[in-house]
């Protein structure tokens, strides 16, 4: 199967899910919390004409205030910690947090140092972990699907409470 075929199949499934839950696009704000930039290469690849994720309803937004989800890369460095928390607080509820890449999942090769923070879940609740160094574009799409399932559960819980 070619990359294009894989993408078509996964993308359509993702599109269905997004349509059901949001009735519009899934808005994502990406935050580099100290990555090596490898993860950014792959997030950017999702916008190239071969993957073209916008057609499946995934939209990268400029402000966290417009975002449904934060896609965080990097181990969370000391110098990015505050900016990351501010971005998290600026994102409206109910929100999703995806930790993308080994660094964001558990610190990866950088781990815990005086300047590096061994993963996003030390600082905020994480909904999905997308492992890989960096994860391939297909893996990111798969991670997003899992995240959306999680959001569905979250919304249901909120409804039950109400």
């Amino acid at each position: 199967m070619t990359v294009e075929d894989e993408m078509e199949i996964m993308g359509q499934r993702l599109h269905e899910k997004i349509k059901n839950i949001f009735g519009r696009s899934l808005s994502i704000r990406e935050v580099d919390a100290g990555s090596c930039n490898g993860c950014e290469v792959e997030v950017n690849a999702l916008s190239n004409p071969i993957y073209d994720m916008e057609r499946f309803g995934i939209h990268i937004v400029a402000s966290p205030r417009h975002a449904d989800m934060l896609l965080v890369t990097g181990p969370v460095t000391r110098n990015m910690e505050l900016a990351l928390l501010k971005t998290y607080n600026a994102t409206p509820d109910p929100k999703l947090v995806a930790a993308m890449g080994s660094c964001a999942c558990n610190g990866g090769i950088f781990g815990e140092t005086y300047a590096s923070g061994s993963g996003v879940d030390r600082f905020m609740p994480v909904d999905v972990y997308i492992p890989g160094c960096p994860p391939r574009p297909q893996a990111i799409i798969f991670g997003l699907m899992v995240a959306i399932d999680k959001l569905e559960q979250k919304i249901r819980k909120l409804e039950v409470k109400a």
């Binding site: 110098n79 900016a83 140092t113 300047a115």
Partner: peptide, 11 residues
């Protein structure tokens, strides 16, 4: 800059 300083040389 240096927001992404991770302590690589020490590592």
């Amino acid at each position: 800059l240096f927001y992404t300083h991770k302590g690589v040389e020490k590592l």
